[in-house]
């Protein structure tokens, strides 16, 4: 059996991912999470004297806290199966990646388990976020120094 013709058979028979439905679910889930984030930032603006700009940091932290509760009680993975990227892309999904790994590796102890494995899913996000920020900022700084653009 040659691999190429077999892959064609698989493509014909295997159930397709329901892309449109998945996108609608992702839109709904992600939208709701961001709307909750917006409400949370209003709370920080009206009750804790944060400004529109500075409210985002405590809001993000609060969302990660909510993510911990949902992850710990086994609810976030159900939201994840429904919402797909809708629950993975918001910062709550980043929190879920960190927290689920932390919970999972508790059985190997707090140093070798939790500590070592906490970022095994979310690590690339930090690594490539930092590295791309470095490259972008470096290029921009060079261009400013050369007088090509201004801050």
């Amino acid at each position: 059996m040659d691999a190429e013709s077999y892959q064609k058979t698989v493509d014909q028979i295997a159930p397709k991912r329901p892309v449109l439905l998945n996108c609608m679910k992702a839109f709904l889930t992600g939208g709701i999470i961001c709307a909750i984030g917006q409400l949370v930032s209003f709370v920080f603006m009206y009750f804790f004297s944060f400004t529109e700009r500075t409210a985002s940091n405590p809001s993000v932290a609060t969302m990660v806290f909510l993510s911990m509760v949902l992850t710990g009680f086994g609810i976030y993975k159900k939201i994840g199966q429904f919402g797909g990227a809708g629950s993975a892309v918001p910062v709550t999904g980043f929190g879920n990646a960190v927290i689920s790994a932390a919970i999972e590796h508790k059985s190997e102890g707090f140093i070798l388990g939790v500590g070592v494995n906490m970022f095994k899913l979310a690590g690339p996000v930090i690594v490539y976020g930092v590295f791309s920020a470095f490259v972008v900022a470096l290029i921009k700084t060079i261009l400013v120094k050369m007088g090509v653009i201004s801050w």
Partner: peptide, 17 residues
């Protein structure tokens, strides 16, 4: 699952297959 895929509580979406 924890060895081959993701932590149990991680919210990854599984396809119909």
């Amino acid at each position: 699952e924890r060895q081959f895929r993701y932590p149990i509580e991680y919210g990854a979406q599984k396809p119909p297959t």
